[in-house]
Design a protein around this nucleic acid. Structure first.
Lengths: 200, 200
DNA sequence: GACTCAATACCTACTGGTTGGTATGTGTTA
DNA sequence: TAACACATACCAACCAGTAGGTATTGAGTC
């Protein structure tokens, strides 16, 4: 009566994403993960050699899941690179919906907790964030080229800035337990990009 | 051989600030706090009725400590409100020094972890962040007034945006285990404010 | 197509260490 | 002498991880 191959592993990873986004890494127990995945500890330790490995693989899983989401978003098909950048920002604002754990970032949450105590997880989170930023960076670089912009900042630094704003917006959302401030932050981010590219 | 009144309590609170900034809230045990404060659990439970109360009071303690730091910063004595706003941003950049736990935000870290699980701590973190933002907001409001700015955003939302950028910059700093990206984020924040007020 | 056999996938039951919290003190101060 | 400020010793619950089992799958053999 077992499920198709490796589906269980995915269930553990999905459970980890949900639970860590709700309670954080340290407060999420392996038993929690097993219960949510509707599987047992024996199965868990068959797939992972411990909590750390779960976290590292969950970071990669997060990249895959969100990567798919952004790849399918309509803005990626816009012809103008600046439109894609602004479309990305708008999309990030649009997906701020539902309860706080539903729209906040798994790797940002985890990095916050383990940066000093677990280098392997920290590295996995950093990689996930930077891979995502690199895709934004590509469009920013094209937009800067197209607008012949002579700036005292790089496309990379602006791309990372967009991520910082989003991560910070999530923290304010968590603190207030709401979405409004976060959305207003993204409005400011959009305004900044518009001003940089003189679209305003 | 006991210390002057209530000094022990402060030692617990200081220990909590340091440890949570290093390891996060959940991973910080009461025993850790006692050890760092060089006091015993008996003393701890004399001053606090549990970990939650420690966290709530530590948030207030954090506001007091950082409040003192900013009150003494040189930028607050500048005559022009916009200079004070930009001076604040520069000051935030300047104090990004040393190891990551030394410059990151206690309440931001804690809010991230407990927002769904502990309303009392979440509220304390929100209050701490918003009190700090309110001081920035005051100068922003004056600057907007003085520059006769007709903006489609409020001073409050811009003030909260500055906090979001800072909190997000801290997350990137934690993920990369360094300071550079965070500082570049603050450069972007400064550029944004300069552009809003046409100082560039 | 039936018959091994080994690897895979999953389970139950347990353990040793940790953790938040308690019970019950003693010394010190006003 | 009562309140305060600490300390020691303990406990029950919890948690990461282990031991050792059973069921399922799939590839090779005849």
């Amino acid at each position: 009566m077992s499920l198709p191959r490796h589906q269980s592993k995915t269930k553990f990873l999905d459970a980890a994403l949900a639970l860590v986004r709700m309670k954080g890494y340290a407060a999420t127990t392996i038993d929690d993960v097993c219960q949510r995945a509707e599987l047992t500890k024996g199965s868990f330790f068959h797939h992972f050699n411990g909590k750390e490995e779960l976290a590292v693989q969950a970071a990669a899983h997060w990249s895959a899941v969100t990567g798919g989401l952004f790849a399918l978003a309509p803005y990626v098909r816009l012809a103008d690179p600046l439109d894609r950048v602004l479309g990305y920002v708008d999309f990030r604002k649009a997906i701020i919906q539902g309860e706080v754990p539903e729209f906040t970032c798994f790797v940002g949450t985890m990095a916050q907790e383990i940066h000093q105590t677990n280098p392997a997880i920290r590295q996995a989170c950093d990689t996930s964030i930077r891979e995502h930023a690199a895709r934004v960076e590509a469009d920013i670089a094209l937009a800067m080229q197209q607008h012949d912009m002579k700036a005292d900042f790089t496309a990379k630094s602006l791309a990372l800035y967009t991520q910082a704003v989003l991560q910070g917006a999530f923290i304010l959302a968590k603190a207030e337990n709401g979405r409004e401030t976060a959305k207003e932050c993204i409005d400011h981010l959009r305004r900044y990009i518009e001003m940089l590219f003189r679209r305003r």
